[in-house]
Protein backbone atom coordinates (compact mmCIF):
# COMPACT_ATOMS: atom_id res chain seq x y z
CA UNK A 1 0.00 0.00 0.00
CA UNK A 2 2.85 2.39 0.73
CA UNK A 3 3.95 2.07 -2.91
CA UNK A 4 0.73 3.57 -4.32
CA UNK A 5 1.50 6.62 -6.47
CA UNK A 6 0.68 9.91 -4.82
CA UNK A 7 0.79 8.48 -1.31
CA UNK A 8 1.75 11.12 1.16
CA UNK A 9 1.76 9.38 4.44
CA UNK A 10 0.85 6.13 6.13
CA UNK A 11 -0.26 6.21 9.75
CA UNK A 12 -0.07 2.92 11.59
CA UNK A 13 -2.47 2.17 14.41
CA UNK A 14 -4.88 -0.45 15.61
CA UNK A 15 -8.20 -1.15 13.92
CA UNK A 16 -11.02 -1.52 16.44
CA UNK A 17 -13.98 -1.78 14.06
CA UNK A 18 -13.12 -3.65 10.86
CA UNK A 19 -13.67 -2.46 7.30
CA UNK A 20 -12.00 -0.45 4.58
CA UNK A 21 -13.23 2.83 3.08
CA UNK A 22 -11.85 5.87 1.28
CA UNK A 23 -13.11 9.42 1.54
CA UNK A 24 -12.44 13.01 2.58
CA UNK A 25 -11.19 13.86 6.03
CA UNK A 26 -12.92 16.19 8.45
CA UNK A 27 -10.42 17.04 11.18
CA UNK A 28 -11.37 18.32 14.61
CA UNK A 29 -8.50 19.53 16.77
CA UNK A 30 -10.81 19.60 19.76
CA UNK A 31 -12.44 16.61 21.43
CA UNK A 32 -16.07 16.02 20.46
CA UNK A 33 -19.15 15.66 22.66
CA UNK A 34 -21.90 13.25 21.60
CA UNK A 35 -24.91 14.23 23.68
CA UNK A 36 -25.15 18.02 23.52
CA UNK A 37 -22.33 18.09 20.99
CA UNK A 38 -23.89 16.64 17.84
CA UNK A 39 -27.34 16.56 16.26
CA UNK A 40 -28.01 13.04 14.92
CA UNK A 41 -30.86 14.17 12.66
CA UNK A 42 -28.47 16.30 10.59
CA UNK A 43 -25.05 14.84 11.42
CA UNK A 44 -23.67 18.20 12.54
CA UNK A 45 -21.59 19.54 15.43
CA UNK A 46 -23.81 21.79 17.56
CA UNK A 47 -21.53 22.77 20.47
CA UNK A 48 -21.26 26.54 20.15
CA UNK A 49 -17.76 26.78 21.59
CA UNK A 50 -16.50 24.08 19.16
CA UNK A 51 -14.21 24.85 16.19
CA UNK A 52 -16.51 22.79 13.93
CA UNK A 53 -19.77 24.38 15.12
CA UNK A 54 -22.36 23.88 12.39
CA UNK A 55 -20.20 21.53 10.31
CA UNK A 56 -21.65 18.25 8.99
CA UNK A 57 -19.63 15.04 9.38
CA UNK A 58 -21.94 12.74 7.41
CA UNK A 59 -19.98 10.65 4.90
CA UNK A 60 -16.63 12.09 6.09
CA UNK A 61 -13.67 10.38 7.68
CA UNK A 62 -13.97 11.99 11.09
CA UNK A 63 -10.50 12.60 12.55
CA UNK A 64 -10.48 13.80 16.17
CA UNK A 65 -8.45 13.63 19.39
CA UNK A 66 -11.11 11.76 21.36
CA UNK A 67 -14.52 11.78 22.96
CA UNK A 68 -15.54 14.09 25.76
CA UNK A 69 -18.58 14.79 27.87
CA UNK A 70 -21.66 12.72 28.46
CA UNK A 71 -21.89 8.94 28.39
CA UNK A 72 -24.57 9.45 25.74
CA UNK A 73 -21.65 9.65 23.28
CA UNK A 74 -22.10 6.14 21.89
CA UNK A 75 -25.88 6.39 21.79
CA UNK A 76 -25.77 9.66 19.85
CA UNK A 77 -23.33 8.32 17.29
CA UNK A 78 -25.38 5.11 17.08
CA UNK A 79 -28.35 7.35 16.27
CA UNK A 80 -26.41 8.85 13.35
CA UNK A 81 -26.17 5.32 11.93
CA UNK A 82 -29.88 4.69 12.47
CA UNK A 83 -30.80 8.04 10.92
CA UNK A 84 -28.41 7.82 7.99
CA UNK A 85 -26.12 10.69 9.02
CA UNK A 86 -23.08 8.73 10.26
CA UNK A 87 -19.49 9.56 9.40
CA UNK A 88 -17.83 7.27 6.87
CA UNK A 89 -15.08 6.21 9.28
CA UNK A 90 -13.53 7.25 12.58
CA UNK A 91 -9.88 8.00 13.20
CA UNK A 92 -9.03 9.16 16.70
CA UNK A 93 -6.02 9.64 18.94
CA UNK A 94 -7.12 8.74 22.47
CA UNK A 95 -8.90 5.48 23.15
CA UNK A 96 -11.62 5.72 25.79
CA UNK A 97 -14.72 3.69 26.54
CA UNK A 98 -16.96 6.38 25.04
CA UNK A 99 -15.10 6.50 21.73
CA UNK A 100 -14.56 2.72 21.49
CA UNK A 101 -18.19 1.82 22.18
CA UNK A 102 -19.34 4.71 20.00
CA UNK A 103 -17.32 3.45 17.05
CA UNK A 104 -18.62 -0.11 17.52
CA UNK A 105 -22.29 0.87 17.55
CA UNK A 106 -21.82 3.37 14.70
CA UNK A 107 -20.46 0.35 12.77
CA UNK A 108 -17.94 2.31 10.72
CA UNK A 109 -14.28 1.35 10.12
CA UNK A 110 -12.26 2.78 13.00
CA UNK A 111 -8.55 3.05 13.73
CA UNK A 112 -6.89 4.39 16.88
CA UNK A 113 -3.65 4.06 18.92
CA UNK A 114 -1.38 5.43 16.17
CA UNK A 115 2.38 5.69 15.95
CA UNK A 116 1.85 9.38 15.16
CA UNK A 117 -0.91 11.87 15.92
CA UNK A 118 -3.55 11.72 13.14
CA UNK A 119 -5.01 15.08 14.20
CA UNK A 120 -1.67 16.76 13.56
CA UNK A 121 -0.92 14.86 10.34
CA UNK A 122 -4.26 14.94 8.54
CA UNK A 123 -5.94 18.11 7.24
CA UNK A 124 -9.61 18.65 6.50
CA UNK A 125 -10.21 17.88 2.83
CA UNK A 126 -7.39 15.33 2.55
CA UNK A 127 -8.29 12.15 0.72
CA UNK A 128 -7.72 9.31 3.13
CA UNK A 129 -8.11 5.56 3.03
CA UNK A 130 -9.05 3.92 6.30
CA UNK A 131 -8.02 0.26 6.35
CA UNK A 132 -9.20 -0.84 9.77
CA UNK A 133 -8.58 -4.50 8.92
CA UNK A 134 -4.86 -3.72 8.95
CA UNK A 135 -4.86 -0.72 11.29
CA UNK A 136 -3.70 1.68 8.57
CA UNK A 137 -4.71 5.16 7.51
CA UNK A 138 -3.26 6.30 4.19
CA UNK A 139 -3.32 10.06 3.62
CA UNK A 140 -3.20 11.15 -0.03
CA UNK A 141 -3.53 14.91 0.33
CA UNK A 142 -6.41 17.03 -0.94
CA UNK A 143 -6.11 16.41 -4.71
CA UNK A 144 -4.70 13.42 -6.56
CA UNK A 145 -1.19 14.10 -7.78
CA UNK A 146 -1.00 17.57 -6.26
CA UNK A 147 0.87 18.64 -3.17
CA UNK A 148 -1.30 20.06 -0.44
Amino acid sequence: MTSVAGTRLVLRGRGIVPGRVAGRALVSHETISGWGGIEPATGTIIERRHELYGVCFTGKVLVFPGAKGSSGWSGFFQSTRLMGTAPLAMVFTNLTTKAALGAIVTRVPTVTEFDDDPVAKITTGDRVEVDADNGLVVVYGPRPGHPR
Binding site: S71, G75, T96, T97, L101, I104
Partner: peptide, 20 residues
Amino acid sequence: CEGGASTGSASITGRIPCWG
Protein backbone atom coordinates in the same frame (compact mmCIF):
# COMPACT_ATOMS: atom_id res chain seq x y z
CA CYS B 1 -18.04 5.84 31.55
CA GLU B 2 -20.27 3.24 29.97
CA GLY B 3 -22.85 3.68 27.22
CA GLY B 4 -26.27 2.34 26.26
CA ALA B 5 -25.04 -0.83 24.57
CA SER B 6 -22.47 -1.76 27.22
CA THR B 7 -24.87 -1.23 30.14
CA GLY B 8 -27.63 -3.04 28.22
CA SER B 9 -25.30 -5.98 27.71
CA ALA B 10 -24.03 -5.86 31.31
CA SER B 11 -27.58 -5.91 32.68
CA ILE B 12 -28.35 -9.36 31.23
CA THR B 13 -24.88 -10.91 31.66
CA GLY B 14 -23.45 -9.35 34.83
CA ARG B 15 -20.21 -8.62 32.96
CA ILE B 16 -18.31 -5.54 31.76
CA PRO B 17 -14.78 -5.19 30.31
CA CYS B 18 -12.18 -5.10 33.08
CA TRP B 19 -10.29 -2.11 31.76
CA GLY B 20 -9.49 1.49 32.67
